[in-house]
Each structure stands twice: as structure tokens, then as C-alpha cells.
């Protein structure tokens, strides 16, 4: 009986330890692979609010690109959108791509209307169906900001809300 209990104890600890170790190593490798992949603007396809497929490489290659991953229900994202909307002039020389995994079109439209994102020609809001963003960019906090230069190389990745001055400074660096 005692032997059985010992065997069960060893098995339980080994299974828990094995599970955690396996998923930690797997997650770490995936994270490193995503970090390597996003150093150059990755090929990723999203859907526009009108239902059209849009690839990140479809945008003007002459302009640097700012990608904002957001969710309309996140407080920090509201702040981010408000700041971008209010400082639209500062972003006029770049392409802003805002990607969300939210599945409520109504909520996204309200979000864009609230911060006047519709009125800005250089801002494109895209829908991320099937978690394409996470598959390509890896696990990211919401909001996340990626800044790509003219050469499509990653200049900076900000995690969490970021003030426009910080984005502009990195873009012009």
C-alpha cells in the first residue's frame, strides 16, 4: 500500500513537472521565433471593416508603419486611440494600422467613431479573425505598438499604452 502511494506521488509530481516544463520550453521557443519573425514586417493578412482582405504589405512602402494591436473593451486602448486621434497631424507622414481581435463590428465602429478614427485617411482599422495576429506576432499585451521604418525593419515594440511623443520619437530615430 505504501509502495503504491509512493509510486502515485512520484507519478503526480513528475506529470505536473513534466507538463509545466514541456509547455514552458515550447512557449519560450515560440516566443523567440515570433521575436525573430517580427524584426522585419511579417506577411500577415487581416480583414478591413468592409470585408476586404488586407495584407500588411499592401500599404504604401514609402511610409513608415505603426501597428497598434487593441481591443475596444480595454481602457488603455481607449486612451491610445484618443491620443492618436488628437495627435493625428503628428502621424500624418506614416501609416497607422490598428488591428483588433474583437468580433463585434458594432463595438469596433463605435470605438472608431468615438475617437474620430474614420476621419483620418492614414489610419486603417483591421479585423483579426482566427487570431492571426497572435500566430504571427506571438503573445502580446493589449495594447501593443509596433513601429516599422521605411525599410520595413522593426524599430521599436512598446508593450502597453504609449504616448504619441514616444511613438513619433522612435519613428524619427
Amino acid at each position: 500500500m505504501k509502495k503504491l502511494l509512493k509510486a502515485i506521488l512520484i507519478a503526480v509530481i513528475s506529470i505536473i513537472g513534466g507538463f509545466l516544463t514541456y509547455h514552458t520550453i515550447k512557449g519560450y521557443n515560440e516566443k523567440k521565433e515570433a521575436e525573430r519573425r517580427v524584426q522585419t514586417l511579417p506577411q500577415a493578412e487581416f480583414v478591413s471593416l468592409t470585408g476586404k482582405k488586407v495584407n500588411l504589405y499592401d500599404f504604401d512602402p514609402e511610409k513608415p508603419m505603426v501597428i497598434v494591436y487593441f481591443h475596444p473593451e480595454c481602457d488603455h486602448c481607449h486612451y491610445e486611440a484618443q491620443e492618436i486621434g488628437q495627435n493625428a497631424a503628428a502621424f500624418s507622414h506614416c501609416q497607422v494600422v490598428m488591428v483588433t481581435s474583437d468580433d463585434s463590428l458594432k463595438r469596433i465602429e463605435n470605438f472608431c467613431a468615438e475617437y474620430h478614427l474614420w476621419e483620418l485617411s492614414n489610419i486603417e482599422v483591421l479585423l483579426d479573425h482566427n487570431n492571426q495576429f497572435k500566430k504571427v506576432f506571438g503573445k502580446v499585451v493589449i495594447p501593443s505598438v509596433y513601429i516599422y521604418g521605411f525599410d520595413r525593419k522593426l524599430k521599436k515594440h512598446f508593450q502597453g499604452e504609449t504616448k504619441p511623443e514616444a511613438i513619433i520619437t522612435e519613428m524619427n530615430s
Binding site: I13, L20, T24, G27
Partner: peptide, 19 residues
């Protein structure tokens, strides 16, 4: 020591999944 090792792996697992 085994318990500590298990705890370290658990913290690493959480760090990876929450960051």
C-alpha cells in the same frame, strides 16, 4: 529542492503565459 524546482518551473510557465 524538488518542490522549489517545481515552483520555479511553475513561475516560469506563468511568466510566459501572462507576459
Amino acid at each position: 529542492g524538488s518542490g522549489l524546482l517545481l515552483w520555479v518551473v511553475f513561475v516560469m510557465f506563468i511568466t510566459l503565459n501572462l507576459s
